[in-house]
């Protein structure tokens, strides 16, 4: 799955958990969930669960530990899907 497709899916997933609408619209690999999107840490779990459901993957604790930025989340999704193509 391409990076662009993952970012588009992430925007939909993140929307209910962030009030930073401008940051969300311009979401990029460098966006940080807590520093930029001001997502409550208890809602990061929801994002992890939503990503699991949306992409049909299982995110282990070590992968979840890294999921603080869009880039790290893309990396986790692509590696779980066994697909690093689309760069």
């Amino acid at each position: 799955m391409t990076k662009e497709a993952i970012i588009a899916a992430l925007k939909t997933i993140i929307k209910p958990y962030s009030e930073e609408t401008i940051v969300l619209e311009t979401l990029s690999e460098n966006t940080d969930f807590i520093k930029d999107l001001k997502i409550n840490s208890a809602n990061l779990v929801d994002i992890v669960l939503d990503v699991e459901e949306k992409f049909g993957i299982e995110i282990d604790n070590d992968s979840m530990a890294k999921m603080l930025t869009v880039q790290a989340t893309i990396d986790v999704i692509q590696s779980k899907l066994g697909n690093n193509a689309g760069e």
Partner: peptide, 10 residues
């Protein structure tokens, strides 16, 4: 209202 910790897997 912000967090539904009863959600499956949470």
């Amino acid at each position: 209202t912000q967090s539904n910790w009863r959600r499956k897997g949470y």
